[in-house]
Design a protein around this nucleic acid. Sequence first.
DNA 1: CGGAAGGCTGGAAGCGCTTCCAGTTTCAGG
DNA 2: CCTGAAACTGGAAGCGCTTCCAGCCTTCCG
Lengths: 337, 337
Amino acid sequence: MAQGVPHRQSTLDEVAELAGVSRSVASRVLNNAPHVSRAKREAVERAVHQLAYVPNPTARALATRQTGAAALVVSGEDPSIFADPFFAKVIVGASAALEEAELHLMLCLAASDRGRRRVEQLLRSKGADGVMLMALREDDPLARLAEEAEIPVVFGGRPVGLDPRWYVDVDNLGGARAATEYLISLGRTRVATICGRLDTEVGRARYRGYQDAMLAAGLEPYPPEAGDFTEPSGAAAMAALSARHPELDGVFAASDNMGAGALRTLRDAGRRVPADVAVIGFDDLAVARISDPPLTTVHQPIEGLGREMARMLVALINGQAPTPLILPTRLVTRASA
Amino acid sequence: MAQGVPHRQSTLDEVAELAGVSRSVASRVLNNAPHVSRAKREAVERAVHQLAYVPNPTARALATRQTGAAALVVSGEDPSIFADPFFAKVIVGASAALEEAELHLMLCLAASDRGRRRVEQLLRSKGADGVMLMALREDDPLARLAEEAEIPVVFGGRPVGLDPRWYVDVDNLGGARAATEYLISLGRTRVATICGRLDTEVGRARYRGYQDAMLAAGLEPYPPEAGDFTEPSGAAAMAALSARHPELDGVFAASDNMGAGALRTLRDAGRRVPADVAVIGFDDLAVARISDPPLTTVHQPIEGLGREMARMLVALINGQAPTPLILPTRLVTRASA
DNA sequence: CGGAAGGCTGGAAGCGCTTCCAGTTTCAGG
DNA sequence: CCTGAAACTGGAAGCGCTTCCAGCCTTCCG
């Protein structure tokens, strides 16, 4: 940066003057609006090139009342939940879709009080053209704020106890049911689940899917053994489960990380997978591929989730009326089941 | 959103009028600038509260010529490199530091041509108050643009063939040397390395660290066996290495993912870790903890990297003159070596 | 060749906020 | 009770761009 003179940014006025037209015409050329003769259009283009002119986005934003940015806010009390590669994939998808709409991506990690206050500001001051909300906790105050906000809001996953107007979700229930059904189809009858946090909709839906499948097969569901979606919690849950129910021959873990943890515990305990216990995870993250044995899991289209959220948001911003979306999941069979 | 009347956002003028003061005074109160009597200050505050007034950030940005946002751009031809949890951690750190400075975080994945063009725009139009640049490739055109830009730019990691004025890096060389020295101190003498891409500074530095340690111990470094930092590439490299040099008793992998890949290959080949071959990784990501056996690795302060980049950027934005920073790494011993 | 339709054009009014500055008020000290 | 300094205050001029609109100039048809 800053080598030599500050070199004042050139303005539209200067472009207009150099091109010998009025500022209005120059503006029209830039936004390629109609009502500009070929000659003037070219003159302006030449001037733009000559001055290396770049429009000032802030001024444009003020005049058009559009910021040109969309925000992705990730809630949660602990910023480290964001370290989950899940979010990175969502971002990749969302980023691509926003790029198509020429929108910038603002990322808000609303973990601290301060962070949440900033999100509130953003929502109320219309600091972005729209907002995508993820990982809301039960009774998250952000939910209210979002409902009251006068800018488009799209939810990623349905927050517990709320029925947002616009959201994109993944078929957690169906995926969990499919996983459990697969275990059952393998002849396993003593299938337990390591479920995720039951104060999240994801955790609940996946648990419900497990229950549904068990009941449908005439089997008694085991009581939920809860983890928090992380590897250590999966390992701990597996230990607790084995102690309480040594007869288990199948486990559905509500996340790959927990599944990997379960594999570790089983391995340490000398139980073979899948011979003694079959394990299925959920997410289809990298960890599922590199665990030992590779984890059979429920694939969810995470980038797709991000992409669709962004697309829905763009639609809303453009005044369209999209409908909520639930993306399909599918079972990926590997060695663990 | 949009329940009921559009409810026009109230403006500073309205606040001023309601409080019975001029707009200037109201503005001063909001920015708590001096030269406002107690009485008027309170009157304005009351009006702000009553109207639920929130200043319009765009207008403020136009007037102050400050956008209130900093951008983090992640380069690379493939957007999926962003899926590496590495970046998520950088973001967590950067986000926290930016929050303290009341700056928003804009995230730019400059993978596509379109994405790169947008970054160029951002740089040239001063669409952000500053920019953090990461994962530049060799001869990345973004580097030039950044140098020419008239806004503060901080590099995360030094790009190959460039000596940026402001950067934050991690002591890759020292870390790699320490890892290799540790293997040697364990009595291993036939230590090879699975290095990362040698067209990145990270890859080169870690390879150089390995070389240094070997030479210093009077051992002959093996020629580099390159991967691309991913698990599969590590597995493949390990296979190639074993085929070519069956005598190996130690391997330094330049990333945990590659280390995990190496472990997998060794396990599949029936070689015991660390008894037959000791393995060390680099990064200290989650994968190092859950691999089998857990991977001894070089810890690098990734969140710290993000935090320091953001702090340096904030310093630059505030007109200070920070100095480049190289963060320390340290060896974390686990079971694999 | 007249006239109307319609494309072009540029002046001017914003968008909502900051900030300079000149004028006014306040008040301690003499 | 006066004086000057210090503290306030509000008018006004922007920040750089979009967009409405009234007027002008083409065309083109009858």
